[in-house]
Design a protein around this nucleic acid. Sequence first.
DNA 1: ATGAAAGCGCTAACAG
DNA 2: CTGTTAGCGCTTTCAT
Lengths: 348, 348
Amino acid sequence: MVRKKRARPSSYSGSITIDDVADMAGVSTATVSRALSSPGLVARDTRERVLEAVRNTGYIPNVAARSLRAARSKLALVVFPTCITPFFSELLIGIENALSAEGYGLITGSLLERPERETQLVHLVAAKQVDGVILLNGQMIRSDTLRVDQLDVPIVAVGVPGKSDIPSVLIGEREGAAAVAWHLLELGHRTFGYVTGAPGYVDDERWGGFTEVLTEAGIAVSEIVRYPGDFTGASGIGAGLQFIESSKRPTAVFAISDMMAIGFMKTLREAGISVPADVSVVGFDGIEFTAFCEPELTTIRQPSEVMGFEAARLLIELVQEKTIPADERSKTLGTELVIRESTAPPSR
Amino acid sequence: MVRKKRARPSSYSGSITIDDVADMAGVSTATVSRALSSPGLVARDTRERVLEAVRNTGYIPNVAARSLRAARSKLALVVFPTCITPFFSELLIGIENALSAEGYGLITGSLLERPERETQLVHLVAAKQVDGVILLNGQMIRSDTLRVDQLDVPIVAVGVPGKSDIPSVLIGEREGAAAVAWHLLELGHRTFGYVTGAPGYVDDERWGGFTEVLTEAGIAVSEIVRYPGDFTGASGIGAGLQFIESSKRPTAVFAISDMMAIGFMKTLREAGISVPADVSVVGFDGIEFTAFCEPELTTIRQPSEVMGFEAARLLIELVQEKTIPADERSKTLGTELVIRESTAPPSR
DNA sequence: ATGAAAGCGCTAACAG
DNA sequence: CTGTTAGCGCTTTCAT
């Protein structure tokens, strides 16, 4: 089959290749390629002729060919946890902002409680379909034979503290949780509850920061009532139920996610227990809805969009120059205690 | 440079190609390719030998090469609206479920209020980087020279009713809004408010279904108080402010998104106006928060995850066999009126 | 049922 | 500064 020599600007349909542009501009394909990728290497007027031809033909480089040849796809994979809360949507916005500014695309993947998804996602990486990975979930993804952190692709984790040496964007988890403890202590609380997250590093850190301050204030850790949770609103409701059924009721409860705090408050409200009059509640994350619920939730705000943005920036640096000084391979951002209506001095 | 002839299973690092597998299995690359893509064309034992070699080498096909050759990427683009509400996260889950089940990956893109993003996204399509597009935003994306709906790539729109002939997954917008009207009428309401969405088809349809029923019930459309909104919680607060400041206060208000309804209720609550005692409020979408706010919101639930799933299924069919009977190119799903605490008979 | 060979569209040496 | 050339890794006729 003979390829047409002149492109038809009227249609975008794929058949316009670099050859067409080269023909029209009267240069070689190499020059076209250079004019597009490394403008500095091409003479001014040649470049303009090429650009003109690009415009006339409606040429758009074929990404597959470029990826194959250049061995990079300009695509990043973002792995979500099973449960996608609004917090992650906000992260995503920051990520996309940074990525798209540098011409990178964004493949998303979540595990969706289907184990084979893990393998699929790792294969995406192994197949060189993506240049880098942003991990939003604590549970490291792995599959039978492949582990994502063993692939030679840059990885950035977000909000997963711990001893891992993966470049990360973190927040001051301990400091945030400590601020909650101080705030509650200042209000005069002496008995505390804590709604846990699904087991993992975040929970450890927040628990650590929370208890450390309380311990210093003379509160016995064993006296803190722990309600099991998994970050979801539903688990917050469960925690609320436990609170109600138990005779041991702390006057202040710290739920380490906003959704849990909101579910918790809802259960208490229905049981006729007033927040903050009877019990103070604090969340963690700072999602939009905390300003809309009743009462408005006191919480620790994470700079979610910034976190996403920084993570993507870090990844791009990693992709481009594989050598980042060890001390710059992680960033820790601060959090902010947002005091609203759900906390008050204890009534007794 | 000489390519290594034997692959090293101990590393995933890219260099294992189809040649390595062919060598190890003692067959040609063509056979390996067939054994993997069209198993039927290869003799049983040959195939097994190939599979064995694949396992031993840890071979993973290079997607770029495959895309280039096969002229398809097994990637779909999902375009989000500027404002990502939890409703869209739910859609995304359904989409990813359907896509990943068929081995398709998922590129996401949103406009992010930056006009040049439009061009970027359209280029993604034009560059053949994706096999299909799912449009979650009403505002058709277009750029100076390219329009996404003119590219020869299958497109599916979700929740964008109207005369467009783009294959779509829709919900019964009119019926849903009509159900709201019936519900309110049945409760005895005779004065109504309506919080609009950003201008577009959804608003037209919902307004149409809502007013049609009210008109039949003898309510003059001109008597319905319209509060401008844009789907966000913030705009719901604005609507609430307008409600409060006006002397003309309907006893029932229909906000066409849950976030607006929630913001609206919050404003009233702060002004000491009780929902539903003083005014009934109904939302639309059925996001998770509606069950957590105070009072729990009466709303129209859209089957978001199913919508996403169906949209992706439709897209896959479109991608695979480009001929779908016209009457199967769109699906309309039903909605459900969820009656909760925010609606009650008017007090007067 | 299998192999040989020809590219898909692009980039990067290497010359000139 | 620009052109020639040689593939990137895979699929797919066309033979056998």
